[in-house]
Structures are given as structure tokens and as C-alpha cells.
């Protein structure tokens, strides 16, 4: 049996893959698991986005994968370099939960992340194929590069494909 590639993406990281294999990120809370996929060229990418906007970053040499407004364009660029075609690309996303029921501004970050991600996708003209966002559960997601299916697992609801 051939072992297929499993790429793991940590919090505030991103990665891309071509051909076959899986890109996975675990324990998404208020963060967003943003996946882009080109079904024709079988190129996919995943970013584990932590915060909405990079304008608060304090130096120029910051981590692009951390913010929605820089992670999504970076993910797109890396996929294009790997042979994806711009017109084929769609997005699937999960996460953006509110893990604790506290009325603090910082606790609404999940919702702000969802809104910002959608805004950026719209600017880039990338359609959203499916999403599993909001609510109050942690999620683990796996993007299958062979067919673009995204599996979402939570402790409360189990596994589903979106």
C-alpha cells in the first residue's frame, strides 16, 4: 500500500499540495480553516487563519498566514505557482466558532474572521463552494487533494463532508 502524503498545518500557518494527499489542520476554534482548490489541476491549499486584518501587525516582516487579508492572497499565489489555474479555484471554509460564552469583544473574533474571509474571497472573485462556520464547537478539517472534498470533524457532531 502506498502511503499518501498528509501535510499538517499549524495555527497561523499555510501549505499547498498538488496531485494527491491530504492537508489537515486540527483544533480550529475562532480561527478559520480556509481551503482553496482547483479540481482540474488537482491543486489545493489550506490556511489556518487566526485574525481578520494585518493592519495591526507591528513590523513589515510579519507572518502572512496569520491574517485573513494576507493569508488568502498568499495561499492563492502559492497555488498558482504550483500549477493551479485562477479560473478553476473555489473555496471551502470552516471554523470561526465562539468557544466561550463571555461577552468580551475579543470573544467575537470568530464572527469577525468569517466576515473578513468572505470579504477577501469576494475581492479576489473566488466563489465559496461550501462552509461550516460559526457555532460553538472546535473543528478539525482535512482537504483531500484528489477530489477537493473537505471533511470536518467536531467532538459534538462527528465527521461530515462539505
Amino acid at each position: 500500500m502506498i502511503e499518501s502524503t498528509i501535510l499538517r498545518v499549524g495555527i497561523a500557518e499555510l501549505n499547498v499540495l498538488r496531485g494527491e494527499g491530504i492537508i489537515k489542520t486540527t483544533g480550529l476554534g475562532s480561527c478559520i480553516g480556509m481551503t482553496l482548490y482547483d479540481p482540474i489541476n488537482q491543486v489545493g491549499g489550506l490556511a489556518h487563519i487566526m485574525l481578520p486584518a494585518s493592519r495591526i501587525a507591528r513590523d513589515a516582516n510579519f507572518n502572512k498566514a496569520k491574517y485573513a487579508d494576507t493569508a488568502i492572497p498568499e495561499l492563492l499565489d502559492q497555488m498558482l505557482s504550483l500549477g493551479a489555474s485562477r479560473k478553476n479555484i473555489h473555496a471551502k471554509m470552516a471554523g470561526g466558532a465562539q468557544m466561550f460564552q463571555i461577552e468580551l469583544d475579543s470573544m467575537k473574533i470568530g464572527y469577525k474572521n468569517i466576515v473578513k474571509c468572505k470579504e477577501i474571497l469576494k475581492e479576489l472573485n473566488i466563489p465559496i463552494r461550501s462552509e461550516d462556520t460559526g457555532g460553538g464547537v472546535g473543528r478539525t478539517i482535512e482537504l483531500n487533494i484528489l477530489n477537493g472534498s473537505l471533511s470536518v470533524r467536531s467532538i459534538k457532531y462527528g465527521i461530515k463532508e462539505i
Binding site: I11, A12, T26, G27, L28, G29, S30, C31, M50, L51, I56, K66, A97, M99, F100, Q101, I102, S106, M107, I109, G136, V137, G138, R139, T140, S154, I155, K156
Partner: peptide, 20 residues
């Protein structure tokens, strides 16, 4: 507030301020 969920998901809430 209490949450019963994945370690990564609950802990990321506490790293947002650092992340900014």
C-alpha cells in the same frame, strides 16, 4: 466560562492578544 472541546480550539482564544 467553561468549554468542553478540542485543546487547540479552546487555547487559541487565549493567544489572540499575543497574536495581534
Amino acid at each position: 466560562s467553561l468549554s468542553m472541546d478540542m485543546l487547540g480550539a479552546v487555547l487559541s482564544s487565549g493567544m489572540l492578544q499575543s497574536g495581534q
